[in-house]
């Protein structure tokens, strides 16, 4: 059974996104006017998230739906596949490419829709790239992490594929903090990561515009 009736929902790809966003909202005192939802099934993945969008846009009394997804290798392609789902649901006149500060779409008598493509609506990448931008400026461990990844890659010792490198990076960095191996969300709460980084502020701004007067 659907857990609760929520008329403002932020749809994200998985648990990690959920925890990072909850932690950021807490640090920025964002009002809890929306729930953060995941596709919530085993098959999971971007496909079931995209397919669920037309169904979610029909949720009774829904006022706003935010969608956070990874650009992965190709931001344009990701945006196009999302765009076509939104057009199916009657959202026309969508921008050709996403705005840097996140998209918000208003159509009369329809829920407001917001889109944020990780990391920053401009570059390819994933949630972990976004979180890497929260590492305090001039951090001395960053070049060390970079070197060690380079080293093992040069020796072909890395077991991660290239597209998972940002995960290897951020989790290596997190392994070397005061509380080694904290999950990303907790590292934000513990201020090991900087929630005031420009990318975080921009993201929180987008959330506020989307859900603030929802």
């Amino acid at each position: 059974m659907p857990s609760r009736e929520s008329t403002a929902q932020l749809l994200v790809e998985g648990k990690n996104d959920q925890h990072v966003i909850w932690a950021l909202c807490k640090q920025h005192n964002v009002e809890e006017t929306f729930t953060v939802e995941t596709p919530n099934n085993d098959s999971g993945g971007i496909g079931s998230l995209l397919n669920s969008i037309p169904v979610r846009l029909k949720i009774p009394r829904l006022k706003a739906l935010g969608i956070v997804l990874d650009a992965d290798q190709n931001l344009e392609a990701r945006w196009q596949s999302l765009r076509s789902r939104l057009e199916e649901s009657g959202y026309n006149n969508l921008p050709i490419s996403p705005n840097a500060d996140g998209i918000i779409i208003y159509i009369p008598e329809k829920p407001k829709v917001g889109v944020w493509i990780m990391p920053n609506n401009r570059l390819p990448g994933i949630l972990e790239n976004f979180v890497a931008h929260l590492i305090p400026e001039g951090d001395e461990l960053v070049p060390k992490v970079e070197n060690i990844l380079q080293d093992i890659e040069n020796d072909s010792l890395n077991r991660y594929p290239f597209n998972k490198r940002p995960k290897a990076f951020i989790h290596t960095w997190l392994a070397w903090q005061e509380t080694p191996g904290q999950p990303m969300g907790q590292a934000i709460t513990a201020h090991a990561l900087n929630h005031l980084a420009p990318i975080a502020t921009s993201f929180v701004d987008w959330l506020r515009r989307l859900f603030g007067e929802a």
Binding site: N41, S48, I59
Partner: peptide, 20 residues
């Protein structure tokens, strides 16, 4: 009237999305 096809209903039930 808001309509759901059988496919859309599958997604709603699988992902626990409210339809009522």
């Amino acid at each position: 009237a808001i309509l759901y096809s059988a496919d859309e209903l599958d997604i709603a039930i699988e992902q626990g999305i409210e339809v009522r």
